[in-house]
Amino acid sequence: MQKLKVLSLPYLVWMFIFILVPIIMVAFFAFTNNEGALTMENISDVGQYANIFIRSIWLAIIATAICLVLSYPLAYILSRIDKHKQSTMLMIVMLPMWMNFLLRTYAWMTLLGNNGIINNLLELIGIGPLKLINTSGAVVLGMVYNYLPFMILPLYSVMEKIDKSVIEAANDLGCNSFKVLFKVIVPLSLPGIVSGITMVFVPAISTFIISRMLGGGSNLLIGDLIEMQFLGNAYNPHLGAAISLVLMAIILVIMTVMNQFSPDDQVLI
């Protein structure tokens, strides 16, 4: 046991310097003003951006739901096929992630553009050019496209561990396939669902480059707002820190609620 503690020391130091200290600094900035005096003003000011928060949460929820619906059947199929086929299929799932994130999003910009490939094809079959880019739909699409693998992987790794004989036993005892799904597979894969949702929802709610590139600057999300405070014209790190703090609180609440669905021994927080 003593040895294990020594081994964890490098990470503990890392965690202290690069995780704990920055969080304390964010909190410090959020509750002080330019002169360094204690103030609640920054947190109060965040209130005026309530609609941006609501939009961000809403879009992130939609993107997460779409990811879940797309990934769940795929992860199940993946976990049931041949072992060596599985690794090939997994590689195909991972393939888009080998490409740079910005480049992938940029590709969508040219696909969805008014003169982009999709609109050109639509025009050929007689459906006039549609407004695809710079809409909140495009932002959701970008989120789903970029974060889908983060949903598939945890679902797959949990489902892979579900023993085939468990499903066979359920069948033997008279369950139809619906009952097998809802009484056996879903409960057993709950931890995977929870961690998949976490891994998609958290980056989706705080993204800024997707909304910037696909939302055309008129679909501001929390991430854009924070970026504006640190690198943009607004330059107000104190307000930026306050927004980040509120965002952290929102994520914490949502994660806590989510964790109530997973079995006690696999709690993330």
């Binding site: 947190i43 109060s44 000011d45 965040v46 209130g47 309530a50 941006i52 501001l220």
Partner: peptide, 14 residues
């Protein structure tokens, strides 16, 4: 840019 401009209570966020 965020288009909605109703005044919000300053206590909302805290």
């Amino acid at each position: 840019k965020s288009a909605e401009d109703e005044t919000v209570n300053k206590w909302l966020m805290p």
